[in-house]
Amino acid sequence: MTATTTAPKDRSAARRGRTLMKWFATSTAAGPLVALLVAVTVFALTTDTFFTVDNGSLIVQQVLVVGTLAIGQTLIILTAGIDLANAAIMVLGTLVIARLAGESGMPPLAALIVGIVLCTALGGLSGVLVTRLALPPFIVTLGVLSVLTATSQLYASGQSFPVTSSLLTWLGEKSYLFGRIEVTVGMTVMILLTAGVWFALTQTSWGRNVYAVGDDEEAARLSGVNTKRVVLSVYLLAGFVYGIAAWQALGRIPNADPNAFQLGNLESITAVVIGGTSLFGGRGSIPGTILGALVVTVLANGLTQAGIDSLYQQVATGVLVIVAVAVDRLVRVRAT
């Protein structure tokens, strides 16, 4: 009796174990999840201040801007592209919004819309160069990066522009959940954006086309996908996401500075890579990217809490990128 009941149980347990193994081997989000859990556990055990509600909400606030940039970056990398200009687009967006709303006296809402439309258009510019003129994304965005960085510096002429409008800093506004968990509007926007892009990528035919184009553009074209239009739409959407990132950045620090986020492009690529998205396109996910961005932020935050000099953060991030891709590769070699 007991023997007959335990045997199927064992088998189902084994099957469950196998499916878990399979999930680990195939899901792109598994690696960053493990890295995040390890990092959180280590910092929670070694410091008193890390594993607290306040620090938790601080980490989420710190992740907002780079996380948003990384969502746009994920979209582009999924099509086997890369965007070196994303942070430069965002910084120009913050400057335009701040100057229009400040000096020019434009209504904040109009300034915000102009800024977001500008970011979308600049994303579209890279998209047009990549699709219509068949130029490689790496070079296009490298060129756009240097042009836009310079444009921002010239437009700001060495100054930074504070933002006072409550609409423009709205995303940084704080409220308290259950009396003590600090949440900002920016977090809600981030969650909505994540959910929206995730839905579009996984539940719509457009999303399937994005993965198809990234996996093999020629095969997708022969299957009847309008590949150029799909890629262009990806760059436009990414540009829009950078516009939202500009709004997030103004909410976090209400001051538009042309020298801010100079490493934003590399940081967002780091988050995407740690998140398990393949730089060759066609494989990866938005949840992975969010986890990747969290890993980078937790590492920086935890090292500070542990009293380790902030100088080590860049070293740790660099090591993390290499370890993440190495582990990813080892897992994949085992799985196949």
Binding site: I82, L266, I269, T270, V273, L279, F280, D309, L311, Y312, Q313, Q314, V315, A316, T317, G318, V319, L320, V321, I322, V325, A326, R329
Partner: peptide, 26 residues
């Protein structure tokens, strides 16, 4: 890392870009 471990050079050197610059500051 590129040849023996077989990782893509863009990712490897992105990592070492941060790593070596970090070492400068350290």
């Amino acid at each position: 890392l590129v040849t023996f471990v077989g990782l893509p050079s863009l990712v490897v050197t992105l990592g070492t870009l941060a790593l070596f610059r970090g070492l400068c500051y350290v």
